[in-house]
Design a binder for these strands. Sequence first.
RNA 1: UGGGGUGUAGCCAAGCGGUAAGGCAACGGACUCUGACUCCGUCAUGCGUAGGUUCGAAUCCUACCACCCCAGCCA
Length: 566
Amino acid sequence: MNNSTSTPANSSATATPSNFIQQIIREDLKNQKNDGRIHTRFPPEPNGYLHIGHAKSICINFGTARDFSGLCNLRFDDTNPEKEDMEYVDSIKESIRWLGFDWEDREYYASNYFDQLYDFAVELIKKDKAYVCSLSQEQAREYRGTLTQPGKNSPDRERSVDDNLDLFARMKAGEFDDGAYTLRAKIDMASPNMNMRDPVIYRIRRLHHHQTGDKWCIYPMYDYTHCISDALENITHSLCTLEFEDHRPLYDWVLDHLDGISHPQQIEFARLNINYTVMSKRKLKQLVDEKLVTGWDDPRMPTLDGMRRRGYTPASIRHFCEMVGVTKSNSVVDVGMLEHSLRDDLDKSSPRAMCVLRPLKVVIENLPEGHKEEMTLPRHPKDETMGERKIPFTRTVYIDHADFEEVPPPGFKRLIAGGEVRLRGCYVIKCEEVIKDAAGNIQELRCTYDAATLGAKPEGRKVKGVIHWVPADESIDVEVRLYDRLFSHEAPDSADGDYRDFINPQSLQVLSGCKAEPSLIDAVAEERFQFEREGYFCVDKSDSGPQRPVFNLTVGLRDTWAKQNN
RNA sequence: UGGGGUGUAGCCAAGCGGUAAGGCAACGGACUCUGACUCCGUCAUGCGUAGGUUCGAAUCCUACCACCCCAGCCA
């Protein structure tokens, strides 16, 4: 495994840039708040797969704990069984581990607290801070008022504590139909903050829960559950995204009205947005359901499973999250930044190999039939600890079609008719003849090689170009999948028209019959390489077979030549 | 039109009254057996706008403007 992918993120004490959350924490530490303890949590709802946006949250929560010698819990926010499933809890755990974080034995579920949550609700009722309401969903909406008009009190708002206690117990006991009653916090129907207009804290839903089975028919709501879960776990700083800012008063209200419970501080930061992709769970699911991609782990998806399959390294994602920073301003980060972080890591960690994507046959005429000469190339140009690889040089080899031009554009430094080029790690060859078929398509090249140029500059002339190649008979046939961004519009979400209309038709190009150097026959799932002069590739973990690797383009090499010629 | 937030370069982002960090991108150039990597250089008289306070303002004050979030028995 690559060095970069195995470095545990929990232990790396790299200096991170200062951000407003760290400033708050330093201040808290200085004031001996929470006895100098720092405890965060990452609280996904197990209703889908994690994506790069979650990675930011994971890095912030686990990273903050790590930077201040604290702890970070993994907690599944599983209060709505309707959309949740064990399949998701498993995949979420796997993704977090892959990203390089470790919650040790602190794996919790909001559903672990259902009994306590119920008792706290009883406490609120006894304090006359919660009541059972019989308003239907539609009525509740009417009573809630609007953004500019206050709501009005529920007719059940002044129900007696005893009646509320009785009704709530019967809700739990399953005496009522789904939706017949709710338990509501008694706050203020005229609050300018909609979340404070007597929010529902319990609803009746007869659903099987992946953790608690059929034990419950009433389930607590997020706002009521999250703060209490944080408090029960002794979380000190509850870091979440901006849309919960309006919920903070409710978070605080619940804890303020309960006895003997700690009071974590909720701090909100901006979600991650990246251009040329979509990040909402709904849209991602739609792409999968409508088969616009092959699945949640399609290499074009911004899901962690997709990025993993694409060949992203965990370290590159973590580093990207650090580059992006933590603020409260909504922003859209350029994918270029993600790709930079990726290439930066991959360049250091990937062994080099040669693979000809669009093979063009080249016969070296001044080499005898059956000639075979072992070439030795370093696996990495700057890291000799990676070792070497052998590639046989034979009379017939393949080079890439793109590396030969009959009418070269100015500045072209690859092979041209009558010109010379170096085969990487091998000899300089000269093109003597171009053989075409009846239609004028180039079929093969007849070349000669200069025996004096192995590891040496040619005598009396300059050969600028270096191209990659593989031996014809001893190379292996592989399938290569070239991926590009999923959308051709930088803001598919907010462009005119449906985001699906902007799917990039070229986002996947499958190449078969690519010729790879022989050592690649043993490449194993998820192994990464740099195919020299092409880009970084990894062995697809789902579609490769033993001795039959399928390669995914992770990201291409920077290509100033292509850019110049655009 | 109520409430909560946010505005610093093409994109992220530092800055916390003392004269605009850094990264990405871009553009020059050096190096190169990967048109890669690496290295060097260029890139905000300007901080949403308009006023004000001050010797001094991106930082403080006032007004305005733009954008984001909130009316689930979702999280």
